[in-house]
Write a protein that binds this DNA or RNA. Sequence first.
DNA 1: GATACCGGTTTCCTTTAGGATAGTGCCCAA
DNA 2: TTGGGCACTATCCTAAAGGAAACCGGTATC
Lengths: 122, 122
Amino acid sequence: METTNQNITHTRATCLASVKAVKDALYVLNGKWKLPLILSLSEGPMRFKDIQRALGEITPKVLSNELRDLEENEFVERKILSTKPVTVLYEMTPYSRSLDRVLEELRNWGLQHRQRIMRKSE
Amino acid sequence: METTNQNITHTRATCLASVKAVKDALYVLNGKWKLPLILSLSEGPMRFKDIQRALGEITPKVLSNELRDLEENEFVERKILSTKPVTVLYEMTPYSRSLDRVLEELRNWGLQHRQRIMRKSE
DNA sequence: GATACCGGTTTCCTTTAGGATAGTGCCCAA
DNA sequence: TTGGGCACTATCCTAAAGGAAACCGGTATC
């Protein structure tokens, strides 16, 4: 059947494109910390130590690396305020706002996944 | 101000919970291949070699490991059909359907991210 | 009988992520 | 002046992720 074949071809092609898109996304968002870090900035700018606390035991070296990486990819902006002792603030860029929906879905999924795991372990 | 403090506290707390939820999610979905693999099964069951082709040069060892892992976490079911030569099919479970929205958002983001990168490299 | 595809496994290896620990320069408060 | 917080950097190290290559038994095809 022509229709069926076309449909199969169509879904095959779009499926491959989708797989590629997800791989593209993961390429920049990989690792344990990037998404949680971006999320933690979504309520407003934060300082280094505060991010560290919010993420729960990330070492300063790793955090520093992640921040640098995110800065290079324009997800995060580093701002230095000339206060009494200088204050360094990390802030989301408009571009990282484009991740809001991804983070929202991931958060929701994480919440229900934890519940499922809890239920199973009883 | 009390209201302000309460608001801050509230968003702090929910923010921490959200960070935790995202970390929970990433804990099971980590790595280069799991999400693309689940996505590639979303159009229907696939055989080992077909998945391999769909993901674009994943080695059989790695694919085998990922499938085993996803099976243990109940994202994927392995079905053996007793055809002339046996056919092995990998299929999404109902539970992995709960990732549909996450995958959809990640795919959309990946698509627009690629466009952005393309635009910038011109 | 040779070749090829399927569904993997085995072995070996390199790279990377990520953590532990220590230390730096600066400022402030007691 | 001693102790502590901030914002990091530097060094070292391990474990895990992931890839390359070879191989395996079974079946089908030419």
